[in-house]
Nucleic acid binder design. Structure first.
Lengths: 221, 221
DNA sequence: AGTTATTGTGAGAACTTTGTGATAGATTTC
DNA sequence: GAAATCTATCACAAAGTTCTCACAATAACT
């Protein structure tokens, strides 16, 4: 029975949603703010999904999400009142897996929870065994000839991008869009720097990241 | 000017988005449901991207997407209201290239459209299997007898030009117009130099690029 | 064969693009 | 809140590309 942690300050919602979810065969723990949610999680490692209201006293949903994402890729769904739906993009950029606006129906809620759980099963612990080395995406660690090398966050994203798009040339701007986000407007040459550091982390495999002069970079499989 | 087909039943959105996109130098055709979208596409082959609202009368966005994907890889972006219980993953599993939830900002929309268009250009770029060799256009690489030879940007363009126009003689100026661009005013003999280097890259296949004395060059298939 | 027009070719200057180390500012960690 | 780490940008070095020119080679024509 999947276990869901639900953080919500309004008692009415807490009770209602708990019933909704229990009828759908979920195990539900409710807490009334973000602080309590984090406290619960620090002692318990068996939660399958977190439902986070955005507006809460003490620590709000956004901060909980941001904080959790530093160390975990546990599925998170954010809940918000329609009035602050302008925050949607923010919420997703925080790393939430889905976003539901209040009020929602029982069926919507359950369908989306199931969907996120299914999706995250695949996403979690996605590791790469490439020709000569291993890349543990979640840990952000490379294993090359038995040695473990840890990568910085940007290096992780960039390597993942290359490995998901092998043999395909991408311009610096395309890479910025995909890795940094489409709303990032920085110097395209920043990509060069990160390619450089990634190459050096990869050691002899650094050569796999090819330069397509005048057009961009690609990973050669 | 890229052409976008926008299917949306709500008139308010139709008008607003049309204006958004036109200010960003897109050519926009709006239709009010999925059926009309398919009808339009059956007569027109010049659409660069399709924006599909999910909820529409007659044929909805999901079905349009599913139907189009059987025969085409034209870029598709799905739009949905947050309240829709239908969700992101379903949309993407249908084969859509991106997914934007309403309400969205003008900048978000345009950034993501540009991103999808660029990404798809890359995906759709073709490779060439010519009689004796292979040309991977996106990587700018030739494979001849198992050896990979990389080309310079101009060589890539020139070879692509020849392969797209086999057995057809072009003067130096026509080649300059097509490969270098209409606004390039340089010495036509520059073409000779590039033909020379392309021939040498092609090795034994260099002979396929023929000189039509007094008239120009052509690729013999 | 001699003359002329056209193309092939090698060298190199001018230019463009990429690699790299330093550095300052952000961010995270302790 | 200090220290460590990470990120973005810059400036300059290094590498690669493009274009032009001069001359050699070739073809066409008389």
């Amino acid at each position: 029975m999947p276990k869901i942690l639900y953080a919500e300050d309004q008692e009415r919602y807490r009770k209602l949603v708990k019933v909704f979810l229990e009828t759908a065969k979920f195990d539900v723990i409710t807490v009334e703010d973000g602080e309590k949610a984090l406290e619960y999680l620090s002692h318990n490692n068996d939660v399958d999904l977190i439902l986070l209201d955005i507006m809460m006293p003490n620590i709000d949903g956004k901060d909980v999400c941001k904080y959790l994402r530093k160390t975990s890729d546990i599925p998170i769904i954010m809940l918000t009142a329609l009035a602050d739906s302008s925050n949607e993009v923010d919420g997703l950029n925080l790393g939430a897996d889905d976003y539901i606006s209040k009020p929602f129906s029982r069926d919507t809620l359950i369908a989306r929870i199931n969907c996120v759980i299914r999706r995250c099963e695949n996403k979690r612990s996605k590791n790469y065994h490439v020709n000569g080395f291993e890349f543990f995406k979640n840990k952000g660690v490379l294993r090359i000839e038995g040695k473990e090398i840890s990568l910085t966050p940007k290096e992780i994203l960039l390597l993942e991008f290359f490995l998901n798009n092998k043999d395909c040339v991408f311009s610096r701007n395309q890479i910025l869009d995909s890795v940094w986000g489409f709303d990032y407007y920085g110097n395209p040459r920043t990509v060069d720097t990160h390619v450089k550091s990634l190459r050096s982390r990869l050691g002899e495999f650094g050569q796999r990241i090819k330069t397509a002069r005048g057009r961009g970079y690609y990973y050669q499989s």
